[in-house]
Amino acid sequence: MAVPVLLYFLIFHYAPMVGLVIAFKDYVMSAGLFGSAWVGVENFARLFGSPDFPRALRNTLTISLLRLTFGFCAPLILALLLNELRVSFYKRAIQTLTYLPHFFSWVILGGVFLMVFSGSGPVNAFVKLLGAKPIPFLTDGAWFIAVLVATGIWQSAGYGAVIYLAALAGINPDLYEAAAMDGANRWQQTWTITLPSLVPTMVTLFILSLGGILTAGFDQIYNLYNPMVYDVADIIDTYVLRRMIGLDLGLATAAGMFKSVVSLVLVVGANALARRISRGEQGVW
């Protein structure tokens, strides 16, 4: 039974890794992967040597860390709130509404948010009603990052909550019954039973999230950014996209490999840390 799965991973995930050698080659398509000349670490030198790269790296890390800080808890909180709902129709409706945005493309969402947060959009119309000046949500660096993080959470929290809801369904109901008999209220039950039971899921998701630390959300940023916020919104992916105008596949592969190596180090490191702190009880492997 495991053979198809192994084959899938072998063909679609491990075999393509051979392509990483492009990062060390002056890749010429007609010469192919093995016919192109080796150029050592020249592609990496070009990647790191550009004056714009440090800024792109800094922006990527900033946006990702903010997403991780504010976005990690959002699905958990949403799942806990949904778990407390007792009217099943209402619960299902809310759950559907909250995870629906996950399926919308950022091409569409970008257009919507550009309209919603523009100077003449509904949010600023409300701000003006309150007697305040319009807020440059999308043209001021700090506000733009806030919008990125907030809309990112809005889009992904519902879908992320599904995993926690599955974990919540796996908690033994006897624990809650025993706690109730001991006089524990809902909050105490959440604090002493629900959250500790969710820790393994949280640790796993946190470790996996660290793997995406250098992926700051290209689709979202590309569809929202503008010349006024390039300084804070130019990330590694948008930087590489500009280099791709010359079909410079060596440099693009070098950038991809850099991201993968950093992610691998972070995932392995976080997993080791989790295992050490929990004395071998937590971690992805």
């Binding site: 000349a37 080796w38 150029v39 050592g40």
Partner: peptide, 8 residues
Amino acid sequence: ALLPARPR
């Protein structure tokens, strides 16, 4: 990275 490299 240390494989003999040719200039571009």
